[in-house]
């Protein structure tokens, strides 16, 4: 009985995280704001749902595979969010009028001044993916 209540609360909480992501995706004004909304069902939502599953089953052998499931998500979702976010920033998919400050833009501008004609990359800021591009 108590278990059922806990499981219900966890399930509804997890589903609400998905709903929040949906609302955020529709209502937020630009790509990068939407990215923040998309992180939630993947991290907290999944955690709540897996907890519901663990409480419902009461089986200790299940815990490692659930932890593994969540850890995989923890390891992968920031990487894909970073890749998509960076691609969005570089291809100018953000509304600058919504930014109160942009300290990356200053750095890119300064780097462009000190190394003028390098069309492919903005020199000097030490992109961490240069190795993968070769």
């Amino acid at each position: 009985m108590v278990n059922d209540v806990v499981v219900s609360v966890l399930l509804i909480g997890g589903a609400l995280m998905s709903l929040a992501a949906g609302i955020g995706l529709v209502r937020f004004p630009d790509l990068l704001s939407r990215m923040h909304a998309a992180t939630k069902p993947q991290v907290l939502g999944l955690l709540l749902l897996l907890l519901a599953l663990a409480v419902e089953n009461e089986n200790w052998l299940l815990v490692p595979v659930l932890v593994l499931c969540w850890v995989f998500q923890l390891l992968t979702s920031p990487v894909s969010a970073h890749m998509v976010g960076r691609a969005g920033y570089r291809t100018r998919h953000l509304r600058r009028d919504l930014l109160t400050l942009d300290e990356l833009d200053d750095v890119v501008a300064r780097a462009a001044e000190s190394h003028p004609p390098r069309p492919d990359r903005t020199g000097g800021t030490g992109r961490e993916d240069d190795g993968g591009r070769a």
Binding site: H36, T39, V43, S77, G85, R86, Y89, R127
Partner: peptide
């Protein structure tokens, strides 16, 4: 990045 509301765009 895992915490909603902040996201890493670039790393120097």
């Amino acid at each position: 990045s895992l915490i909603p509301g902040s996201l890493v765009l670039e790393v120097d």
